[in-house]
Amino acid sequence: MRNDTGVRMTDGLAERQFAYSYEGKELHAVIPATTPDLAYYYDGTWEGWLCCVGESYLAKEIPGVIVPQTEEDGFVEENLFYTRTIVTRTDLARRVCNGIVARIGADFLQILQRVFCSCIPDKEAQMLLFTHKGFRYGKQILYLRQDVAVKNVLKGLRDLGREVDKWWGFVRFSDVRGILVAVIGAKNHVLPFIAPHFCDRYHNETFMIFDRNHRMALLYRPGEKAIVPMEEFAIAEISEEEQRYRSLWKQYYDAIEIQPRHNETCRRTHMPKRYWDFLTEMTESEDCISAYKELK
């Protein structure tokens, strides 16, 4: 059965092994079956993961699990898996990278990079399977949402996207001697994805966004930006001017609510409580307004 695009239509192509052929020619190698008791260890970097893909492709095997940890990092615990440590090699990583771009597409690589920054469970193994399928079926794999690996990977993509969306709005800067600083606590590693937005919007400012959960910080000053590891950060003192605007904002936040329409569920749906620690209007108490008045 063929449709007008010439692609063979199949029934639940997801997890099944079948000879994928077009006019009698086999297009790609069959995806090897997953070996559930095989574990890959790698160093947790993006290049390291690309090497996992390369090694798995060369060895024609798919590991059941990929762990971001190496023996040098620390003790790899004894387990029931047959383990294999993947050494990160720049040349292999580049080869895989080029292969993905050439054979599947640049946007496919971009999706992988995004998902790599997300926090879905078992993302490395899911992404590996996803990449194998990508090599086999091409870019169309993205529309095959009924496939478990595709579904999981796209879920990671969506999770990250949603959180990035939220942080665009929920980052709260404080002015510390002319420098804008903000602390966030993200589930996914969102900094690389919120950076372009903030660097564009505040291109004349000097600012920093510190991610408390990932211990990373985005630093920017006109013409220069960097994402660097940072252990700890806290705003030491709040100037009078800063306190003034915080109070004003809190005042505005309280005034804008229409009391007869109060809807706590709706608020928490859109602004889950885990964000509240980082929001000026939720952390500042009512006292800040009265304190502000006394100040005057």
Partner: peptide, 13 residues
């Protein structure tokens, strides 16, 4: 972009 949500659940942009 929504920057906050008021007590009535409406977005503050």
């Amino acid at each position: 972009i929504c920057h906050s949500f008021a007590g009535d659940g409406r977005c503050i942009s």
